[in-house]
């Protein structure tokens, strides 16, 4: 903690990272045919001090989930039900107005996709940094600038030069690092990264991932990384949540989830990754297409259309998430001790 302003949260090294508990979160989008769920009844716990990766195809609801952590789902979407509890903040879903604004940036940092332009094109990075400081009542703006330069230097950049630049004078990788700096400079303890390495070349991608990992450990953060790239997430994450059709279908330690996937969708995802060494024809694309908001089945398992382990029960009963030795899986066929007959009674 180098900022001499009043401590937001608490000093990093001594303070335990906050935990995040998402419970029964449902986010709907208003469409001409009614409100359709992008995220349905998601339960997800981010263990303090860990990096949790969220993978899923486009439209699986992962970005919506990420925005929910800041209660920032954009209209026509809205959080219909559920809670997002962050230690020290309470239920973010209930925050609003000034309180919510002060939470964003200060308590929860958010990093945008690299290809997106998350910076005001007309102002230098330094001026935008000062805007950030003034918005959060940072008294010592000099210290803020010093912190920013330190962070940029840690990420291998010339801080003074970057702060003096406009967005268009920076490369994609540099912009992405500036985005990370802006999310961290106020010492937010929870950091959400939405597609942090998409649209970056492989070398820059590796650098960014290394930086995320290092800063995360150094500052004792609780981090959520959203991506569609299983390879990228495998490099940084401790835990992995797999999303499909607005649901978390599998969640656990990343080594276990990737080493021994239990949900057919996770298995399919891993089979679809081509290996550098070995036969490229071994990579198998998942058959079919991911569901859109409109094509989600009303009843039964959302994945059944593309599933090779499909059973009769999958047509009518939505599989519930079951946690077994640290692994959460939502699948009828995932070989668990619960007898199927008994599960039908629940439904």
């Amino acid at each position: 903690m180098t900022t001499s302003s009043p401590a937001p949260g608490c000093p990093a090294p001594s303070c335990p990272a906050p935990g995040v508990r998402i419970r029964d979160l449902t986010v709907v989008y208003k469409t001409p045919v009614g409100e359709l769920p992008a995220v349905s009844g998601v339960d997800l716990t981010l263990t303090p001090g860990t990096i949790t990766g969220v993978v899923g195809e486009s439209g699986s609801g992962k970005s919506t989930l990420a925005l929910s952590l800041l209660n920032a789902v954009q209209p026509p979407g809205r959080i219909k039900s559920g809670t997002v509890e962050i230690d020290g903040l309470g239920d973010v879903v209930k925050l609003g107005g000034e309180q919510l604004r002060q939470t964003r940036g200060r308590k929860v940092g958010y990093v945008f996709q690299a290809a997106q332009n998350s910076l005001n094109p007309l102002k230098t990075i330094g001026k935008q940094l000062l805007d950030l400081g003034r918005s959060h009542e940072v008294d010592d703006l000099r210290a803020l600038v010093r912190d920013a330069k330190d962070l940029l230097a840690r990420m291998g950049m010339d801080g003074a030069r970057v702060l003096d630049s406009h967005q268009h004078e920076l490369s994609g990788g540099m912009r992405q690092r500036v985005g990370i700096m802006l999310a961290l400079v106020l010492n937010a303890q929870v950091v959400v990264l939405d597609e942090p390495t998409t649209a970056l070349d492989m070398i820059t991608q590796a650098t960014i991932l290394r930086i995320i990992r290092e800063v995360h450990e150094e500052r004792a953060l609780t981090t959520l990384v959203i991506t569609h790239d299983v390879g990228a997430v495998a490099e940084v994450a401790d835990d992995l949540a797999v999303m499909y059709g607005g649901r978390v279908v599998e969640h656990g330690r990343i080594t276990e989830v990737l080493g021994a996937p239990r949900h057919p969708y996770t298995q399919g995802l891993i089979r679809a990754i081509p290996r550098l060494s070995g036969d490229i024809s071994l990579a198998r694309a998942l058959p079919g297409r991911p569901p859109t908001l409109g094509t989600l089945p009303a009843a039964g398992c959302v994945f059944r259309e593309r599933c090779d382990k499909r059973m009769e029960i999958c047509e009518t009963v939505e599989p519930q998430s079951v946690t077994l030795d640290g692994r959460t899986v939502a699948c009828h066929a995932a070989g668990r001790p619960l007898p199927l007959v008994k599960r039908k009674e629940y439904a």
């Binding site: 945008f112 005001n120 003034r134």
Partner: peptide
């Protein structure tokens, strides 16, 4: 609809500052 406006909001910038970002970029 530009990303930097949403980004500014997610960084918790004050409404007045976000409005200035918006107005200056729109008026240019």
């Amino acid at each position: 609809g530009d990303d930097f406006i949403l980004a500014a909001e997610l960084r918790g910038l004050k409404r007045g500052i976000v409005f200035r970002y918006l107005a200056r970029n729109a008026i240019l």
